[in-house]
Amino acid sequence: MTRKAIRMQLYPGYENEYKKRHDELWPEMRNMLKDHGVINYAIFLDKETNALFGYLEIEDEDKWAQSAYTEINQKWWNHMADIMETNEDHSPKTVNLVEVFNFN
């Protein structure tokens, strides 16, 4: 298992909408995440900065990377592009975070 952490940026005023969209995550998206090796995925919001912190536990880095090319993931990115910072392909702008401590 591999742990990953990322930072993303939500536009101001969209905190409730972001949560709502994830509370209503499409079944096809859930299945795609499982099919691409996601064991655990949590997203946290820093209300002072609107920064989003994503934490993932995945089976395999290559398997996870392939999720970006799925039709449902592309549809999800388009669905989220109006409320957060994205790249030209509507993928979220992310910063990979470096693990500096882990307590098991």
Rank of each mutant, 00 (worst) to 15 (best):
N40D: 13
H90R: 12
G37T: 07
I72R: 02
Q9P: 03
I6S: 10
A65W: 00
W77G: 05
I39H: 09
S91L: 02
A5S: 15
A81W: 02
H90L: 09
N40A: 03
I43C: 02
S91E: 11
V98T: 14
M84K: 10
P27T: 01
N50S: 09
R3V: 10
Y69P: 01
Y69H: 14
M29I: 13
I39G: 02
L33H: 05
D35Y: 00
V98S: 08
I83M: 10
V98L: 08
G54L: 03
F101W: 11
S91V: 01
N73V: 07
Q9V: 12
L56F: 07
P12I: 07
E59Q: 14
E15Q: 15
L56Y: 11
N87T: 05
I72M: 09
N16A: 15
P12C: 13
P92G: 01
Y55L: 14
G13H: 05
E17K: 07
R3Q: 12
W26F: 05
F101G: 10
F101P: 04
Y18M: 13
K19A: 15
E61I: 09
K47Q: 11
T86H: 04
L56N: 03
N87R: 12
N87V: 01
A42M: 12
Y18Q: 11
R21D: 05
D82R: 03
E71R: 07
T49G: 10
Y41C: 12
Y55T: 07
T86A: 02
E15S: 15
E17G: 04
G13L: 12
H22R: 12
Y41K: 14
D82L: 04
E28G: 00
R30K: 15
M29R: 00
K63Y: 00
K19E: 11
M29D: 03
E88M: 06
A51W: 00
N16F: 03
E57P: 03
K93E: 04
N78T: 01
E88H: 02
G54Q: 06
P27L: 01
I39L: 05
W26R: 09
D60Y: 00
Y18G: 12
Y41T: 06
Q66E: 15
K19H: 06
D89Q: 04
E28N: 08
D46S: 06
D35T: 05
V38L: 14
V100R: 05
W64Q: 10
N31D: 14
T86I: 05
G54H: 01
E61P: 07
G54K: 02
N73Q: 14
V95Y: 00
P12E: 08
E71Q: 09
T86D: 04
K4P: 01
Q66A: 14
W26A: 13
G37E: 05
D23Q: 08
Q9G: 12
W77S: 10
K93P: 02
S67E: 11
E15P: 14
W26Q: 12
H22M: 12
F44A: 11
N16I: 13
